[in-house]
């Protein structure tokens, strides 16, 4: 039976792992390769690397980091941040990443989803959606949460699925880094409306938050702070989930 996944988020800036709150107030945590290995040993199912300033500073993700991670871990990992061409997508896969996620570039040029899914395969293409509730609907934001797009996140999720995305990485901008719980309503709305897996992101603080995200429809739960600050390990979260009847890999 397919296990629900616990995904560790590693935000990268200048080759180091950092963590912010609500996409701001960035602090340095650790070396990405060292941290990845530790997380693998602690039962992490998957890792996501996000070069957080890549889009806004108009440069690519550090390719060197991708090969170093690939050489050192034996669990899957996804890479994204500032990706704006098919060549970059192919290069990242070629260097050993399992999946690539795109965000801003897919909004500007949705056609890339079709092209990339043909070349690297749908299963390897993740579309990241950063959303914020605007009083009437969840609105899509781009450029690390800086630019509102007047697009409904649920509709956008349906569109990216049609275009060939294999998975959605769904982040609540308001909940990100707060450790006050995921945005369950957002998870529910999106996961009910698509047939591809949804990774919930933003706000995890306790094992119960992971459980609630899964109950809301998430196929995988991403978190950064809880792991970075040593509050819980992936195995501790999974043990909690297993005791409550969730199928996890232990």
């Amino acid at each position: 039976m397919l296990a629900k996944r616990i995904v560790g988020a590693l935000d990268i800036k200048d080759g180091r792992v950092v963590k912010g709150i609500k996409f701001r107030d960035i602090r340095t945590i650790d070396d990405p390769v060292k941290l990845s290995k530790k997380y693998e040993e602690q039962g992490m199912d998957e890792l996501v690397f996000l070069d957080i300033y890549a889009t806004n500073e108009n440069r690519g993700i550090t390719y060197d980091l991708i090969s170093r991670v690939a050489e050192n871990i034996n669990i899957p990992f996804t890479v994204g941040g500032g990706i704006d061409s098919l060549d970059k997508i192919k290069k990242i896969i070629r260097l050993g990443a399992d999946k690539v996620f795109i965000n801003t570039y897919a909004i500007i040029n949705p056609d890339i989803i079709k092209k990339a899914s043909y070349e690297i395969g749908s299963s390897n293409l993740v579309i990241a959606i950063d959303a914020k509730f605007n009083g009437s609907y969840y609105e899509v934001y781009s450029n690390s949460g800086e630019i509102s797009r007047n697009i409904n996140a649920v509709e956008w999720a349906k569109t990216v699925e049609e275009l060939g995305a294999g998975e959605i990485l769904l982040t609540s901008i308001d909940a990100d880094g707060t450790r006050k719980g995921y945005d369950y309503n957002l998870i529910k709305k999106v996961s009910e409306n698509v047939n591809i897996p949804v990774i919930a992101s933003g706000g995890a603080g306790s094992p119960e938050d992971f459980y609630n995200a899964i109950q809301s429809g998430a196929d995988a739960c991403l978190a950064g702070s809880v792991f970075h600050y040593g509050m819980y390990t992936a195995n501790e979260i999974k043990k909690y989930l297993m005791e409550r009847g969730v199928n996890v890999r232990i």
């Binding site: 039976m1 629900k4 749908s122 998975e167 591809i196 897996p197 196929d219």
Partner: peptide
């Protein structure tokens, strides 16, 4: 069946 792609750890 289920969500496609089949992504993750399975038995």
């Amino acid at each position: 069946k289920n969500r496609v792609p089949h992504i993750g750890w399975d038995t």
